[in-house]
Amino acid sequence: MTQKECIKAVIFDWAGTIIDYGCFAPMHAFIQTFEETGVPITIREARMPMGLLKWDHIQAILQMERVKDRWIAKFGKEPVKEDVDRLYVRFEVILMESLNMYTDPIPRALETVKQLRDAGIAIGSTTGYTSDMMKVIVPEAKRKGYTPDFMIASDEAKAGRPYPYMIFQNLIELGIYPPRAVIKVGDTVSDIHEGRNAGVWTVAVILGSSELGLTQREVESMHADELAVRMNETRRTFEQAGADYIIGSIDQLPIVIEELERSGLERGLR
Rank of each mutant, 00 (worst) to 15 (best):
F238Y: 07
V219F: 01
T112C: 15
L52T: 04
H28D: 07
Q169K: 15
I247Y: 04
I257N: 01
L95R: 06
Q169C: 10
R267K: 13
I106E: 10
I121L: 04
E220R: 01
E111Y: 09
I206T: 02
G242I: 08
K54Q: 04
K144D: 12
E65C: 13
Q32C: 12
A159E: 14
Q115P: 00
W71M: 05
Y102F: 15
A73D: 11
D155W: 04
M48P: 05
L52H: 08
K74W: 08
Q115F: 11
E35V: 00
R180F: 12
P179S: 10
S125N: 14
I94D: 02
Y21F: 15
D85C: 09
F238L: 10
G22Q: 00
P139A: 14
I58Q: 00
A29N: 07
A224D: 06
V200W: 03
V113R: 01
G22Y: 04
R47F: 04
G51R: 06
V93N: 14
Y21A: 00
M166L: 06
G128V: 05
V138D: 11
C23T: 06
K8V: 13
K68Q: 15
K142Q: 15
D132L: 13
E259C: 06
M151D: 12
P254V: 08
K114G: 07
S209Q: 09
E220C: 00
Q3A: 15
